[in-house]
Design a binder for these strands. Structure first.
Lengths: 260, 260
DNA sequence: TTATGCAACAATGTCTGACATTGTAAAGTC
DNA sequence: GACTTTACAATGTCAGACATTGTTGCATAA
């Protein structure tokens, strides 16, 4: 019995040692983004660690101190990133104990090929929810928007296209453009929901995939969308929106396929 | 011209001063929870500050430093709490600028001062958002539901009707019935969103109005809805759902009119 | 041998102070 | 009056320290 216990113990020990090795291996490349928010990068690195170490629900993550030194960032950054995951129910933190993986956001076990699939699934899910919402918002905007709302929509659209054509970062402008449509709908609840979905989409989209790819096809059409809404033409608006979603979904599917 | 400018400026200043006063007033009581997580308490205090100072979407929150000293906690705690709200889309943070309110936290009547009209507007808003979502969910359920899902939907429907006919409280059963449809759709995001809206609706609906009134017309039709979904008949499902929403909106409108 | 209690350690929670980066606004210049 | 520059303020990040609490190993007693 003792031998059994000891074998078990040494097994665990060996496993832990090996796990620590792969974790250090996975965390080799430092995070290097002096400007901007590191939260997302920390989470990406953490995801990679989880993949490589094959951590499953219930397993303990490396301590905050270890993560900080491994990733080359401060403990504050680690904590902020972990707080986000904690709020989302992905991890559970216990004072004195440690941080454990709690969620099956990834479904069944976290493995290399699954992760991208899951992330892309997340993309598709946000799109599936956004489609009916944005259609309804556009319908309401056509009915309820004032002329002032329309001018704002037009201005935001021009801003977006200008940034896009200049090759600059158009993410915020895209957000503001759609926001103008939500505001014009007259129902703030839509805005709240879609805003969250929009942010979630960009969180996932910005990280693992390159952004110009999708934009090449979906951004220019936004001009048509703005025109159709301003003209209060529901049929045209509907068609353009469906086309936009079709493009985006097509791109996401392609990316998913490529990454497999 | 100068005087106009100055008046405007002093107005803003006075406003800001008064706001600061009420904020300090609201933050009088220190946070005192030596054990556990302060994040939630910080958020509660923040919520109170927002209410008392009557901050609206787009307004700036006090700086992290101010909040820390006002609430008597460290800036780290403030930041962790704010990070949670940021992830939820409630606030927007900009380096160098500040933190602004991006969503209406106080949204559906935490306070009672006003007003049935507002609350009824809230009802209509949740309905307006739920209509496209529930339609899409039903469409997905028809496509994706397994036979087991269909059996669950049927069981929940029978449970609901039994309670309704027995004159007992059917609110939870109603919730479970719709939940079964969300689960059958295969996209958990829908479930999360609609669940919140469902709860918000019932929160408002249950309190000021008597519940049998609306139920008399909308509950029996749920049998038709379940049948249509189980038969995977999209046209029928769509028609029934639209009828249900039409009934509910009609009732809400009537109640709103009466209460005026 | 087994069980209990205690002490050392480790991990998260929090505070403080500091510096970096960046948006805003006032001041200065043409 | 319009533009540029500068100072300030607010968020982002890091480092160190201490508090609180769960875990583990060891010594002691039954």
């Amino acid at each position: 019995m003792n031998s059994g216990k000891m074998t078990e113990a040494s097994d665990r020990e060996r496993q832990a040692a090996s796990r620590e090795m792969v974790i250090r291996e996975a965390a080799k490349r430092r995070i290097s983004d002096p400007a901007g928010t590191r939260g997302q990068e920390v989470l990406n690195a953490l995801m990679e660690i989880i993949e490589v170490a094959n951590l499953k629900v219930g397993d303990r993550l490396p301590s905050e101190k270890e993560l900080a030194s491994s990733l080359g960032v401060g403990r504050s950054s680690i904590r902020e990133a972990l707080t986000a995951w904690q709020r989302m129910g992905i991890i559970v933190r216990n004072k004195g104990a440690g941080t454990r993986l709690a969620a099956d956001v990834t479904g069944n076990g976290i493995q290399k090929p699954v992760v991208i699939q899951v992330e892309a699934q997340g993309l598709m899910r946000t799109l599936a929810v956004r489609r009916p919402l944005e259609l309804e918002v556009a319908r309401l905007a056509i009915h309820n928007a004032t002329e002032k709302d329309m001018r704002i929509i037009n201005a935001r659209c021009e801003e977006l296209l200008a940034l896009y054509e200049a090759g600059e970062n158009w993410f915020d402008a895209d957000h503001r453009f759609h926001e103008a449509i939500y505001d014009a709908s007259g129902n703030p609840l839509f805005g709240q929901l879609i805003k969250q979905l929009h942010a979630a989409f960009h969180d996932i989209y910005q990280a693992p995939f390159d952004q110009p790819k999708m934009a090449d096809r979906s951004i220019p059409i936004h001009r048509d969308l703005a025109d159709a809404i301003i003209a209060r033409n529901w049929e045209k608006t509907k068609a353009v929106l469906i086309e936009i979603f079709s493009i985006v979904e097509d791109e996401v599917t392609k990316i998913l396929h490529e990454e497999q």
